[in-house]
Nucleic acid binder design. Sequence first.
DNA 1: CGGGATCCAAGAGGATACTG
DNA 2: CAGTATCCTCTTGGATCCCG
Lengths: 134, 134
Amino acid sequence: MEVSRDQLLHNGYHCAVEATIDIIGGKWKSVILYHLMSGKKRFNELRKLIPGVTQRMLTLQLRELERDGIIHREIYKQVPPKVEYSLSDFGESIVPVIELMMKWGNEHLDDILSAREKAETEATETPQLRYTTK
Amino acid sequence: MEVSRDQLLHNGYHCAVEATIDIIGGKWKSVILYHLMSGKKRFNELRKLIPGVTQRMLTLQLRELERDGIIHREIYKQVPPKVEYSLSDFGESIVPVIELMMKWGNEHLDDILSAREKAETEATETPQLRYTTK
DNA sequence: CGGGATCCAAGAGGATACTG
DNA sequence: CAGTATCCTCTTGGATCCCG
């Protein structure tokens, strides 16, 4: 099923992958979705599962995922408060993408790191001759 | 094949999807890769294929993809210059991920847009009562 | 043609303090 | 517990001009 070019242009996307990366491309979104794949999680659970994320950032990314209809936010009116995040039905549809990303990451992490390491050493050795080389 | 937790921690990643999104998560990277899937492209070809990207941004994103070993940069020493970008063998391995993202985007673009539209109207109607609702 | 260099505006993101 | 609010910094990204 193809999406018409007009519709894509009208909404600012010129390519379908652009829309997808807009949904899951946030710095922490894919990781959040990964952890929600295994079931609903509370706010502080996610904080612990995602070292490095700040409270503010986690909140912001969760808000965007909620706005896009990917996750559901369940508030229990009690003291102390309890909020649970879970994938919506729509969010479940993106699970295969996350799973494939995880699979690729696991299989190629070493390649990524060695490529970066190599690039770093070359950068210090050879300052700038992007045009003159080769 | 699993990656050990120590290795992930050592390199700053706590989750395999984090590594993947680090590679393709740039604003234009997934779109660039999408266009390179169908064959090598020259710099200005990519510019035309990706409306909205600036020259500077295209250059920067291409550099990062090159650094990570995803794409190859072939320079033809001639006047005027000619540079062709293509997927490396490593880059080819990520094609299924891009394809799945495109598939998902095509199938769910409408859902995304309607969710955002809904969120926008609700935001103007109901200012802020995230805790008091429900 | 395919960039690099520079300047500047906007947004992402961190730290800290406070709250229902 | 699960945020919000504020301030401040650093990075992203656009515009423009120049170069091999």
